[in-house]
Design a protein around this nucleic acid. Structure first.
Lengths: 331, 331
DNA sequence: TTGTACGCGTTATCAC
DNA sequence: GTGATAACGCGTACAA
């Protein structure tokens, strides 16, 4: 790897001048600029990032830690983040926590160690890396889920009222016993969606709902089992609110196995829209969260915080909207 | 940020000793080890990554450059890469080229500049960053698509014979005029799939196929238009081979708009399996590529190349398999 | 076993 | 406008 010294030597100038040229300082004679540029070109010179970052005491990189790359909700977020970050000259490192607090902690740790400029985190909700984060001076933003007790900005979706609305929608469409499949205990989004569901039921005068609720990981496999259990009970639900789109696929599989048809036999609304949601059999009613916007807003907040030395802790709440399709239409 | 000096001072030892302890050298008195450890703990010391990488002349990071984070095929690859990399102590930086040669080049450039340990690239196929890559000494592996003329290892899928097989499958199922929607000219995977399709047709004695082919970007929007055009011609195809799963969704939308049903009215096989493929209306026949394996194999090759100083250029070809569902069953 | 001191490749602060 | 030169934080020969 060629260094700035070799470029300087070849161009017959000092390293200082090379550095100035390469960083676009306009205080260099145009003659020298040319010499440096051609020398660098000929040598295929490429500045050493680590050295530069060390010297500058900062790295133009944002870390984005999400819980599932295979979930369209998070990939949409990541697009939002990337678009904003990229146009501000930052790279984005995408890390996959798998909803595992240990992995999350480990990624936060790496990010801090590499001295990234800022961190965007969709926390698992349990212990997580919050202590690490609040201990450091590196700016961070929590996405989708609040960070237990650390500071930082937060971008959320009002998922509670969306869940309530979806539940009432099911009842209005004629279903009488909506059930709910939500995420693990302690995960804020799981709790909120459950809470919204319960409120929705109360609002329409239903109360006995404990038996109609199941919790599982935010994955297809868990949701498949949960749906089986729920539908095998003595008084099964006649419709379901499902807490995310990956789980929804699991539930749909279970329905198919049982020869049941969503909508006609079991009403269904799931969180998150996806490109394929309208093409399923039947088309899936969803609560569409503004995932891309979560990303852009979060990234913008982070960049603000990096630039100035703002310290107040913002919370931004976006809202979701229900898209009713055939899966919430009784036969 | 606390430095190694402060730890050394607090522990009453030299920085050399601190460094040794933190890097697990066993040549340090256990008494000192303890002192250093507690000092580091109390100060919340975290080694400075850039400095460490500069000194060590390497960074424990792999760059993975793919063309679409929202495509399940690529996210599955990324999981494979991550699993292998992570268990070998490397972090993975995921970059999105959007199938844009400029973006790709720019990401390659950043990766080189940051002196990552290795690069996994799914090249756009056009100029791309191959010159940059072959100019550098950094090991790299091409995934899914070969790299124009650079060296490096390559992991491919035998997508040509898979396309041929899929085409013959359509004919065997009774479709008489299979058409093909493939990717942009010059993209290897697009060309191969088209080629396989043509071979398949010839194998069953069909030749007039030029008019049954459309090219577009590997996206839903392009595929939507392509399908419209194709179905609006005087002698439209009665079935389609579609080159990836994102395009398949676009085609399905078009069919729905036209009141056509896949399978019954227009046969369809698409590349890439996805969690939702079997739940569409109708269930989608697919050519399932071993995406996860592409990732693990590629990552392993890269790690090998990083470890030893192997220079031979490997090409690994994995095979795909057809999963026939209802969309390739005529009514 | 431990400490001193140098260098990794840059950028920024000085003098000139 | 340009060039020495001193850091940035760490790892490691080398000396003790």
């Amino acid at each position: 790897m060629t260094t700035i010294n070799e470029v300087a030597e070849r161009a017959g100038v000092s390293t200082a001048t090379v550095s100035r040229v390469l960083n676009g300082k306009d205080t260099v004679d145009s003659e020298l600029v040319a010499r440096v540029l051609t020398a660098a070109e000929e040598l295929g010179y490429r500045p050493n990032g680590p050295a530069r970052n060390l010297r500058r005491q900062k790295t133009p990189v944002l870390a984005l830690i999400i819980s599932d790359v295979e979930n369209p909700f998070f990939t949409a977020i990541s697009r939002g983040v990337e678009d904003v970050a990229h146009s501000a000259g930052y790279s984005v490192v995408l890390c996959n926590s798998d909803d595992d607090p240990d992995k999350e902690r480990s990624y936060v740790s790496v990010a801090l160690q590499e001295r990234v400029a800022g961190i965007l985190l969709s926390p698992t909700g349990r212990t997580s890396g919050s202590e690490l984060l609040s201990g450091s001076r590196i700016p961070f933003v929590a996405l989708d889920r609040p960070l237990p007790d650390a500071g930082g900005d937060t971008v959320l979706v009002d998922t509670r009222s969306a869940a309530e609305q979806a539940t009432r929608h099911l009842v209005e469409r004629g279903y009488r016993r909506p059930g709910c499949i939500t995420g693990p205990r302690g995960v804020p989004t799981a709790e909120e969606r459950l809470d919204g569901y319960l409120r929705g039921l109360r609002a329409v005068g239903q109360h006995d709902s404990e038996r109609l609720v199941r919790r599982c990981e935010f994955r297809a496999a868990g949701a498949r089992r949960a749906a089986q259990e729920l539908l095998d009970t003595e008084h099964p639900p006649d419709s379901l609110l499902v807490a995310n789109n990956v789980m929804a696929l699991g539930v749909m599989e279970t329905l198919a196995e049982k020869g049941l048809r969503a909508g006609d036999d079991v009403g269904m609304v799931a969180f998150d829209d996806a490109p394929w949601a309208g093409l399923l059999d039947p088309p899936l009613s969803v609560v569409a969260q503004p995932a891309y916007d979560i990303g852009t807003v979060g990234a913008q907040l982070l960049l603000d915080r990096i630039g100035e030395r703002r310290r107040g802790n913002t919370t931004t709440t976006l809202s979701a909207r229900l898209i009713a399709r055939a899966s919430s239409h009784p036969g």
